[in-house]
Every structure is written in C-alpha cells, then in structure tokens.
Simulated assay, not measured.
Amino acid sequence: MNASTNTATDARATVVDLRSDTVTQPSAGMRAAMAAAPLGDDVFGDDPSVNALQAALAERLGFEAALFMPTGTQSNLCALMAHCQRGDEYIVGQFAHTYRWEGGGAAVLGSIQPQPLNHAPDGSLPLADIEANIKPDDAHFARTRLLALENTIGGKVLPMGYLADASELARRHGLARHLDGARLFNAAVAVAAAEGGDPYAAARRICGHFDSVSVCFSKGLGAPVGSVLCGSRELIQRAHRSRKMLGGGMRQAGVLAAAAHYALDHQVRRLAEDHALASRLAEGLRGLPGLTVEAPQTNIVFCDVDRDIAAKLVAHLKAQGVLATGLYKLRFVTHLDVDAAGVDHAIAAVRRFFNA
C-alpha cells in the first residue's frame, strides 16, 4: 500500500496515510542526491546547491531571482513583508493559507492588515469583490497594496482566464500580485492535462500573472522540507532581509536544496498519478449514505459527512490502517507514497463503516 522505494518500517508500510501530501518520505534517488550535494554556507551565499536550485526555479518560472526558505509559511510571510509596509493591507481569501493557516503572521510580525474575502465555488475571489475592497487613498484606511491568491486552493485549480483578469484588475489599481503556489505544480499538471502541453510551461504561464510566487517542495513534490520564493531581484533582496530577521538563514542548506532540486527535475510530471488516484478514491466513495463527495481536480478529495458521525468515521479508519483528517468535512490527500492498492484499501475501509 506504500508505493515509496524508501526503507520504511513494516509498521509504517501497513498504513495508508492520506492526511496530507506533506507526509511523504524521500525516495532513494532523492536521498542519493542529498548525500552527494556540494555544500557551502548559504548565509554567506556560497552554498552551490542552494544557488543552483534558486537559479533553476527562477529560470523555469520566468523570474529574475529566487530565495530558498525552510517553510512555505516563511516564504509567504517574507513575500508579504517585501510587498507591504506597516499599515498596508493585502486582499486575500477567507480560506487562503496566508490568512487562515499561518498563525496571523502578516498582522503579528509584518503589521500588515489582511482584508479577507469570501471565495466563489471555484476557489477564486470574485473580481467585483476585489475591486470593491480596494481602499481609497484616505487617512482613515489602511493602504491596499497587494492581491494574494492561492493555486491550487483546496485542491481546485484557478482558471487561467481568471488569473489574467485578476492580474489586470490588480495592475489597473496599482496593486502588486503574490501567488501562494504551494501546490503550483499540481495546478500546472492539471492545466497541461486539460489544454495539452508541458507542465513546466503551464507553471510558467501561471506565474506570468504574478510579481512573486512561493513554491513548496515538501508537499506533492516529495522533498522533506523547503519552499522557494521567486520574484524580481529587488523584491528578493527585501525578502532576504526578512528571512534573516525571521530566523530562516541556514548554513549548509544545500542538503535540503538538493532534495528540492531532485523533486523539480524528477517528480513534477508524476503528480498526474496522484490526481488519477484522487479521482479513483472519489469514485469509490460516491453513493454512500451520509457522505457527499466533491469531485477532485487535483490530489485532494473532500467529503461532507454528518457531524455526528465524523469523529467515529475517522477513528474507524485509523483502526483500519487509514489516516485522514477532518471534523465534519473529511480530507483525503493522495501523494507519491500511496498507490492504487492503498486507495482501494481506503475505499473498502470507508465502505465497511457505512455498511456495518
């Protein structure tokens, strides 16, 4: 049930862990790349593996520069602090990671006010709502400086036409544009599958609508840690200062950067397998009483469950060797350490609960 080639223990191999795509273990090839990585001191800027990763991602996504970070949370925060000053405001979604799941860092550490908006069903922020919430130039208001979007958002891919329209709206009002692209390559693989072409080219097209993009390597791409912020040289210089302030300056970080670089080169196209398995899982769960399954666009399956049975279902699944998250909305996330047999086991475990 665990498709990874790494040396997991027998106990771990019996568990189908669908809590998140952050639970992946480094593959044998990734471990070899980490072991062979040439190292320096990244605080001095001379770790060759870090520098190579930054240059490679910036070039692939169409940016001037990039900066390796320990986490996506830090990468997003450094981006917000590079775009905004104290008393500025950024427009963001109610369920965006930068607003809801990152400890309020923009407000607490950056003194940046969020202006959260409700999402449309497709995960986007309605253009009319964005425009209506851009503050006038008046001392009574925080200064609206930035539009922050996320792609994928809850596993949903923001339409390319929407990205173009939102970007143009932001530009028209003098706003910078940041993308939390933690799962950028999931979005790019989905776009490439729908429209044809190469996922790297699709990723570059998505990024073309933004001034900065944060890309996470410790989710579906399978690295143990690390995100990269891309932007202009000037923006990355400002973000570098914030990274130091936030404790993100690492020394022989090339060991980690090598894992991310391996993922960039070898584990992007295979995300399509995760998407296919998510669809397989969703299809296997449809039709069960008390369970409403949302059709996945990428690697995340959400299921609405009656509140009074949700906790019992999660406990049942754990006893059956299947790990999931959620209270009244269950979340299953496919990734490189879950194969078809694991998905089928999870389907059977859920069905046993409802058929008992």
Rank of each mutant, 00 (worst) to 15 (best):
G174I: 05
G254E: 02
G326Y: 11
G196W: 03
Q85L: 13
A263L: 01
D46F: 01
S242H: 15
G290K: 09
A107I: 03
L163C: 10
D198K: 03
P199S: 09
P136C: 10
S20N: 10
D274R: 05
S111Y: 08
N2S: 13
C303Q: 06
A260F: 00
T9N: 06
H209A: 11
M160W: 00
A282L: 08
A36N: 08
R60V: 05
A348F: 01
S212D: 06
F332T: 02
T22W: 00
L184F: 10
A356C: 03
R177Q: 11
T144A: 11
L175Q: 09
L67F: 01
R177V: 15
E195T: 15
G254W: 00
A166N: 03
E131F: 08
S4E: 07
L39V: 00
E150V: 08
G123R: 03
G155N: 07
A356F: 01
G123F: 06
A310S: 15
A142W: 13
H240I: 00
Q297I: 07
R280S: 14
E294W: 06
N76L: 09
I206A: 03
F302G: 02
T292L: 09
G87N: 08
A223M: 04
N51A: 13
K312H: 12
G222P: 03
V268T: 08
R100Q: 13
R251C: 11
T98N: 05
Y99Q: 09
Y328I: 07
Q85E: 15
A203F: 02
Y162L: 02
Q320D: 11
V215H: 02
T298R: 01
S20M: 05
A257I: 02
T71Q: 04
H275C: 13
G174V: 05
N355I: 14
N151F: 01
G155Q: 05
H240A: 15
T24Y: 00
R177K: 12
I91K: 04
A349F: 03
S111G: 12
H140G: 15
H345D: 07
F353D: 14
R307G: 15
A203G: 15
N118F: 15
Q54R: 07
R269F: 01
F332H: 10
H83P: 02
D137G: 02
R286T: 15
R172W: 00
G248E: 09
P199M: 08
W101K: 11
L175C: 07
Q115F: 11
A203W: 00
G290V: 09
Y162I: 04
C216A: 15
E283M: 08
M69Q: 14
T22R: 13
